[in-house]
């Protein structure tokens, strides 16, 4: 029995329950739903960590993989990205206690772990020579942490757009009072992006340094690199729009959402473009 998958299924179940609780909380004023959501997420996160631990255990059974993280495969990458997304969400939620954010972020974790279980192959495989480098423990981890944070910012952005729509409509519903003010949501969106943007760029640069030691070039305009750069440019655009032109609210959120679309494309879409750098090809 593959305990990595078993525990991941457990984590998925708790994420799904937490998502359900978060959605109930959107329409029900009782705070018990949000505290249940938080607890369920906590349990899911713990199970997910155990699953990752088992993943590591299976991965290290191949001696050449030892002490490298199992995030080279599509399964490992999806699992880790979902783990990071939930972990970042857990941190934000424990600091800000928004309660409603779960409804907009946790679905990503459900989709991530779910598609890992359904579509990806959990079998541990030996690392190809290019990936046998300590950078595999740093470069993808750093980047996926940034992606996870952007996922959370996207959730905040969705909440902001809903709130904006509520306020502008003639008959704002219960939801309007559940959601924080547009200013608060805009501020949180900005704060998450401001935290994640340096992480993203530094992750890209680390990739360049690794590429220099493995392939002999810092930058090669490989589709994965290029799309990561495009993502960084879009978020840089967001930051400049805010700083310089004072964009707030809806306009700024649209730019940040475009950034997240680029994140998704960098993570998934590029697999079909890049022969070198995709999960499907087993490259770095």
């Amino acid at each position: 029995m593959n305990y990595e998958v078993v525990f991941l299924k457990g984590a998925l179940a708790f994420y799904a329950l937490a998502t359900a609780a978060a959605f109930v909380y959107l329409y029900n004023k009782d705070d018990k739903w949000s505290s249940w959501m938080f607890r369920l997420v906590g349990v899911g996160l713990a199970l997910h960590l155990v699953s990752f631990g088992f993943g590591m255990h299976y991965f290290w059974k191949i001696p050449d993989n030892r002490y490298y993280f199992p995030i080279n495969s599509f399964f490992g990458a999806l699992s880790f990205l979902s783990l990071a997304t939930v972990a970042v969400f857990f941190l934000i939620e424990s600091r800000h206690q928004l309660g409603i954010l779960g409804a907009f972020v946790l679905p990503w974790a459900v989709v991530g772990t779910g598609s890992a279980i359904i579509f990806a192959n959990p079998a541990a495989e030996g690392l190809v020579p290019a990936l046998q480098n300590y950078w595999i423990n740093i470069h993808p981890v750093v980047l996926m942490t940034a992606y996870a944070a952007f996922g959370n910012a996207f959730g905040v952005g969705v909440a902001l757009l809903i709130q904006e729509h509520q306020i502008k409509s003639r008959k704002p519903s219960e939801l309007c009072y559940r959601l924080p003010s547009i200013e608060d949501l805009d501020d949180l969106n900005y704060r998450i992006i401001v935290w994640a943007f340096p992480v993203l760029t530094v992750g890209i640069i680390m990739g360049g340094i690794w590429a220099y030691s493995a392939w002999g070039r810092f930058w090669g305009w490989d589709p994965k690199e290029t799309w990561a750069l495009i993502t960084a440019l879009v978020y840089a655009g967001y930051l400049h729009m805010r700083f310089v032109k004072g964009w707030r609210g809806k306009k700024a959120v649209y730019v940040s959402m475009l950034g997240f679309a680029c994140v998704l494309f960098t993570f998934l879409g590029v697999n079909y473009l890049s022969p070198l750098h995709g999960y499907l090809s087993g490259g770095g």
Partner: peptide, 18 residues
């Protein structure tokens, strides 16, 4: 503003190249 425009241009053509 012009620099943001240049950044957008670079992003666009980078995407075309992929």
């Amino acid at each position: 503003r012009f620099n943001i425009f240049l950044g957008a241009l670079i992003a666009f053509f980078s995407a075309v190249g992929t």
